[in-house]
Design a protein around this nucleic acid. Structure first.
Lengths: 250, 250
DNA sequence: TCCTCCGTTAATGTATACATAACGTATTCA
DNA sequence: TGAATACGTTATGTATACATTAACGGAGGA
C-alpha cells in the first residue's frame, strides 16, 4: 500500500507543478522566456488542464509572471530583489519570534527548538566542518526555523512566512551550502548558531523586542552569505536558482 | 469601443473570481461550507475551467481553504487572525517605510504623498466629519498607503504587501467606515493623519527606524478600530467580510 | 529600403465530456 | 436496534475539442 506509487497517488497538478519548478530552478527554462503550455504538457506528461493549474500556482508562488497578452514567463530576479526577499523573510520571522516571546511559550513547546540547538552544537564541534555536516546543518536549520515560526501560533503569519520562504533563495538555508568551501563559513555558522541560542533565550524570558531584533540580524547573515557567494563564484553551482538571477541588466 | 463590454473584454476567469469573492464576502457562502463547482458555474455564468482557476486564485489569496479530499471551502477567521493580519501588514508597511527612508526618496517622488496628506487635512477640517468625508478618507488613505508602499522600490516587498492587503479586513482602510458613526471616530482619524505626517517627515530626514515604528503604530490603530467595531455592534453592516469572522468557537 | 497591412499560424482561453473517487443511504446481518 | 457493508449518486480531477485572439511573416505600396 505504501509503495512509491507517486505517479498515481499524487495528482497530476502537483506532479506538473513540481516538474515545472524543477525546470525553472535548474535553468531549463530561461527567465523572460514565455512558457509554452504545449511544451510543458510534453515535458511533464500531464494534460493541459493540470499544467495550467500548476502555472497559476507557480505564479502565485512568485516564480512566474503573467504576460498581459496571455500566458506566463519565468521571472528574473536582481541581486537586490533577492536580498530584499531575505530581509523580508527575516522581518516576518522576527515578528513570529516576538509573538512567541510576548504571548508566552511553555517549556515543553520550546523543547524541539532546544533539541535543534543541541544537535547543531554537536555538528559545529568538529573542525573543520565536513560537507556532510553542512548538509545536516541545512536540515536542522530548516527545522529550527519551521518550529520557531509555528511558535508564533499565528496562522496568518505562518502562512506568510511559508510564502516568503517558498522562493528557494529566500529560504533560511538558501545560501549555506554555497559557501561551504569558504574559510569564513565556519565563523558564519557559529554566529548563526549564537543567534539561535539568543532567540530561544529571549523567548524564554519573554523579551519580545530582543527576539525580534536577533531574528532580523539572523537574516542579514543570509544576505551576507548571498553577497559572499556571488563574489566568490567558485561554488556557484551549489546555488539554488542561479539561473533566475539577472546579471547587470539596467 | 470603450463601452462597458465587461462581459466580453474581461476574461471569464476574472469574472468568476470577482463574483465568487463577492459571494464569499457578502456571506452568501458560509465559512466551512464546501463550495460546489457546479453551483459556482450556475451563479457566475462561467464554465467549470475558469471557475476552477478562480478557486485556485482565491485559495492563494487566503479566502478559501483546500479540502484534503478535494475541492475548497470558505475559510473562517478568528478575531485574533484578523488582528494578526493587520499587524502583519503594518510590519510590512513599516519595512517599506524604512526602505524608503534609508534608501532615499527625492522630493519629487514624495510629492504625491504630500498631496494625499493635504487632501486629508482638508477633509478633517470640517467638524463633525460627514459620511461623505469618511468615504473620501477611505479613498485617500488607500492611495497614501499604496504610494508609500511603492516608495520602497522593492518589488518583492510590494508584492507581499499587496498580498497581505488583499484580505479586506486587513487592508489599510478596512475598519474606517465601520466606526464612522462612533464619537471616537474623529479623534482616531486625527491620530492616523498625524502618523501619515510623521512617516513623511521621517522619510524626508532618512530616519528609517522612526518611519518603521510609526507605520507599525499606525496599524495598531486599525486593530483598535477592529476591536471598537466588534464591541459596538451597531454598525457592523459596514464591516467587510463580517460573515467570515467566527464568533466564540473554542 | 522601410513601413504598413493582411493573411496565416499557433498559442491561449473556454467549454464539455469522461473517469475516478468520495460521500451518503439503504439494507442486511449480528 | 445498531453497526457495517455495499451500492448508487454526485462531485471533483483530467483530458480533449473548439474558438478566439495575438504574434509573426510575407507581400505590396510609398
Amino acid at each position: 500500500m505504501a509503495e512509491r506509487e507517486v505517479d498515481r497517488s499524487v495528482s497530476q497538478t502537483v506532479k506538473a507543478q513540481l516538474a515545472l519548478r524543477d525546470q525553472i530552478l535548474s535553468g531549463a527554462l530561461r527567465p523572460g522566456e514565455r512558457i509554452s503550455e504545449l511544451q510543458a504538457v510534453e515535458t511533464t506528461g500531464a494534460s493541459r488542464t493540470p499544467v495550467r493549474m500548476a502555472l497559476v500556482r507557480l505564479e502565485e508562488e512568485g516564480l512566474l509572471e503573467a504576460i498581459p497578452s496571455g500566458g506566463f514567463m519565468v521571472k528574473a530576479f536582481s541581486e537586490r530583489d533577492i536580498s530584499d526577499s531575505i530581509e523580508l523573510r527575516g522581518t516576518l520571522e522576527g515578528l513570529a519570534a516576538r509573538f512567541a516571546a510576548e504571548r508566552g511559550v511553555s517549556a515543553r513547546e520550546l523543547e524541539p527548538l532546544k533539541e535543534c540547538l543541541a544537535a547543531i552544537d554537536e555538528l559545529l564541534r568538529q573542525v573543520p566542518i565536513s560537507v556532510d555536516a553542512f548538509s545536516s546543518y541545512v536540515t536542522l536549520n530548516a527545522r529550527f526555523h519551521a518550529v520557531l515560526t509555528e511558535l508564533s501560533r499565528s496562522p496568518p503569519l505562518i502562512r506568510q512566512i511559508d510564502r516568503a520562504s517558498a522562493l528557494p533563495f529566500a529560504s533560511p538555508s538558501g545560501f549555506v551550502m554555497a559557501q561551504s568551501a569558504l574559510p569564513e563559513a565556519q565563523q558564519i555558522l557559529i554566529i548563526a548558531q549564537e543567534h539561535h541560542r539568543v532567540v530561544i533565550d529571549a523567548i524564554e524570558n519573554r523579551e519580545g523586542a530582543r527576539a525580534e531584533a536577533v531574528m532580523r540580524e539572523h537574516a542579514r547573515l543570509a544576505v551576507r552569505n548571498l553577497r559572499l557567494a556571488l563574489r566568490n563564484r567558485t561554488h556557484l553551482d551549489l546555488l539554488p536558482a542561479l539561473a533566475l538571477i539577472k546579471t547587470a541588466t539596467d
